[in-house]
Design a protein around this nucleic acid. Structure first.
Length: 233
DNA sequence: CAGTGATCATTT
DNA sequence: AAATGATCACTG
């Protein structure tokens, strides 16, 4: 049984990060919140990113809204993911904003999506709505990098979506496009607007969009890990 | 407004 | 019941 202690600084090595993460396994959000001296919301209607921020804090990620990975030095992105009793994801996973202008010449290999998910520290957490947030248990965190097949799956979807954007078809893209990577609105509300390319190449205003990993995709990642999990948790 | 962290809630 | 489209809080 590992005892979790709040970190004072950013982890300097992957080993240090993974040790901190491993120490969170089995704890409830309520227990972790107490260690962090914060209150657990009764629901997430008004604090949707609460869990992610808590885990960031617990692992020593530097706060702020940077476009880079959470642990840039280590090249690792942190993602909490809500799961059900079978370990299946309950929500899609937000990756990053989609560029809607000046996208000529942009490529998968250097894209924000590719960069963000090169190496992810997944922290699966019970996300069942029938369980009170304070009682939701943290499962075993694990490190993942896309294999060739997964990279190809995402690249294929990404190229399809980016081509539509480049051709001024942004308004025709729905969340139904993309088998593993989808494009959905990502904003504070429906009034938020940003520039994009219209049907005839003109500048139009549209709702900002973000890339999301479908549950089918993250579900396979989780399943692959749980099937080989030797942690005994 | 753009970006971080995501889940909510209406529609299908 | 599941997925899409909408939304919440906070920081530069």
């Amino acid at each position: 049984m590992k005892i979790f202690k709040m970190p004072k600084a950013e982890p300097k090595t992957i080993q240090e990060l993974m040790q901190r993460a491993a120490a969170l396994a089995g704890l409830t959000l309520g227990e972790v919140a107490e260690l962090a001296h914060v209150k657990v919301p009764k629901n997430f209607k008004r604090e949707k990113g609460w869990t992610g921020q808590l885990i960031e804090f617990c692992l020593g990620a530097s706060a702020g809204s940077k476009t880079q990975q959470d642990f840039a030095k280590l090249g690792i992105e942190l993602k909490t993911i809500p799961i059900d009793e079978q370990g299946k994801p309950l929500e899609t996973t937000y990756v990053c904003f989609a560029p809607l202008t000046n996208i000529a010449g942009i490529e998968w290999q250097t894209s924000s999506v590719k960069n963000k998910i090169q190496q992810v520290l997944w922290v699966p957490i019970d996300g069942r709505r029938e369980v009170a947030p304070q009682d939701r248990c943290i499962a075993t965190p694990f490190l993942w990098s896309p294999d060739i097949e997964q990279d190809n799956q995402l690249r294929s979807d990404w190229e399809e979506l980016m081509e539509m954007i480049a051709l001024g078809q942004i308004e025709n893209i729905t969340a139904r496009h993309g088998q593993y990577l989808q494009l959905r609105p990502k904003a504070a509300n429906g009034n938020a607007l940003t520039e994009a390319v219209g049907k005839n190449g003109q500048v139009i205003n549209t709702r900002p969009r973000g890339f999301y990993l479908r549950k089918e995709f993250t579900g396979e990642i989780l399943q692959a890990f749980f099937n080989s999990d030797k942690s005994g948790y």
